[in-house]
Amino acid sequence: MAGAEAVKPVLELKGRMMTLTVLRLLDPSVEVLARELDRRVQEAPEFFRFLPVILDVEAVAESDLYLDLPGLAGLLQARQFVPVGIRGGGEDWREAATAAGLAVFPAERDSGGGENRRRAATEEPAARAVATEAGMVVTQPVRSGQQIYARGGDLVVMSAVSPGAEVLADGHIHIYGSLGGRALAGVRGDTSARIFCQAFRAELVSINGTYSVSEQFEEALRGEAVQIALNGDSLDIRAL
């Protein structure tokens, strides 16, 4: 049993990807943003408490709001958000973020860049088969408490993903059994990634960080074979 006897390691790097809430800033005025935040927090204080957020600044990238980034972060912290980084914006924004101790996430459009970028399946199907590795095939059930991540490609699960289990892939996720847990496809920026499953009972599904939880699913789709794709800002879940 690893760790029962042995000396405990003090550090471990895990390829874990989390879904983070993205807060899109649509107005460059700190006052306006503060007022709107207060209103939201009042509506659902528990939901927002200690919620880690990424600030998407794309819509206000041209403004000089970046000058006030530390102030903006402080304003969020005062409302018990946990700002972890920004997304979008130019060099000015990136410098301001670094200075303010915030991470810089790739913008939505060029995310996943470099050698990990996969082409959309629909763009060039033949090329894709060559461009990606065969992906990962899992034959055992993925049980509650287990997490499987197919880095750099697709994930194929031959049996069920139990409630409380989590499967992630940079590419598509195919589940030839029931999906009872969480499935997160395109976790490193592939907006064309999809999720397919034989029986849809998921707790959460996500594509490139856009997620949806079980209360939001259409009742008629429960237990059905479905495919899930990203359609603009929302997930499109439909029967196969």
């Binding site: 059930p141 993925v142 049980r143 509650s144 408490g145 287990q146 139990s162 409630p163 409380g164 289990a165």
Partner: peptide, 10 residues
């Protein structure tokens, strides 16, 4: 059942 599933994973 959920806990048993977890144990099976272990």
């Amino acid at each position: 059942v959920r806990d048993s599933d977890r144990v099976l994973g272990i």
